[in-house]
Design a protein around this nucleic acid. Sequence first.
DNA 1: CGGTTAGTCTACTATATCCATAGACTTTAC
DNA 2: GTAAAGTCTATGGATATAGTAGACTAACCG
Lengths: 153, 153
Amino acid sequence: MISKKTKYGLKAMLYLARRNDREPVLISDLSRDERIPKKFLEMILLTLKNNGMLQSRKGKGGGYYLGKAPREISVGNVIRTLEGPLAPVPCVSETAYAKCGECLDEQTCGIRSVMKDVRDAITNVLDKTSLADMLDREERALKQMLGTPDYNI
Amino acid sequence: MISKKTKYGLKAMLYLARRNDREPVLISDLSRDERIPKKFLEMILLTLKNNGMLQSRKGKGGGYYLGKAPREISVGNVIRTLEGPLAPVPCVSETAYAKCGECLDEQTCGIRSVMKDVRDAITNVLDKTSLADMLDREERALKQMLGTPDYNI
DNA sequence: CGGTTAGTCTACTATATCCATAGACTTTAC
DNA sequence: GTAAAGTCTATGGATATAGTAGACTAACCG
């Protein structure tokens, strides 16, 4: 299960993606609109900024905006930044490998082998999905709900 | 990341699967061989028993043994028992669904849509892999390491 | 029966992580 | 130079993790 921090972070990134190419967004606005505790959100945005996913400007007219185009920011990297490695065990992580203490032999460990498949399955979804993809999904779902057929296959 | 409890549980189940059809296994033996703190292991085995994955016998000649055949026990259910739902967010869990508090509309939520894909990717691996499959993997890896070709495709 | 063996149950503790909040500080625009 | 906005440091309560201790219960064996 992902933490609230990560969920808030994803919502914030999505919000900023929606308002891309416009003015920097105030933390207060984001906090209000997405119902995220302001101080908590500050920390989250800062973390995302320090990891290159966001940029910011101080002072009047300042605020936060995406560090790259929505198409260039993967959901996987947002989650990695806030939650840590996607791998279910450290010994199969590509971004944060750590040797498995109790395991006798990594090469033959059955648990590791399965966990490797899980990691691949997870990253295959999350690293291939961008903020832009997420917005697309929302739009299509909305159109479908409104009864407007969507021919963009 | 899965907890130590879950990892210990998986190792214990695998150990018991290896010794299936033989005598019940003592907690002490399992604890020693897999290097799992005994008291912690007791609790884990009990949980697995209470969820039908294991059976036990008390007194002399007693111990733990699998509740079903290794082929019938999925890694997914072992993890669910010890770690909780496999879904990354409660609103996409099939076994422990819970409404997403902050989400305005589940049907159109982009995060939920992606997380649903992640859940499917995870369960597709874990629910289709049994303890027997894990043992097979170990055996094949071992054979390969020993240079013995494995023609069982 | 009675002792020994082995799982079961209840309770407790220490440490870490999660989810924040408070307040001082720094940078920027006007 | 002052108001606006992000940045940084510190702290706190709640919950989860990773164990430990000890009494209790059931089963077998002679």
